[in-house]
Amino acid sequence: MSSAARLSPSAPVAGAGGHDDRKGPPVADMARIIGLSIPAACMPDVVANTALLQGYADLVSGFALPDDCEPAYEYTP
């Protein structure tokens, strides 16, 4: 597959988090669920990194795996 567009998935255009963050993941809500308070100064960076990870997640999730393909928790190379 071509990897050109997938190397560094784009960060959202807007940098704000929370409910109004329509262009990116709902970072403030996601943080609240795990008891994490994100300082305001850190929010743009966390939003950008969350969007980056979402791009990679989309890439991996876009690949169909057979049902009997188990997670590699006890991994032996």
């Binding site: 795990i34 999730s61 393909c69």
Partner: peptide
């Protein structure tokens, strides 16, 4: 920022990545 974003990753994403690891192996 990278650690915070990682801590929030949904379980579905992590499990899918671990399943893909099995496939790739």
């Amino acid at each position: 920022g990278r650690l915070m974003a990682g801590a929030m990753l949904p379980a579905a994403t992590f499990v899918q990545a671990q399943r893909f690891r099995r496939w790739f192996r």
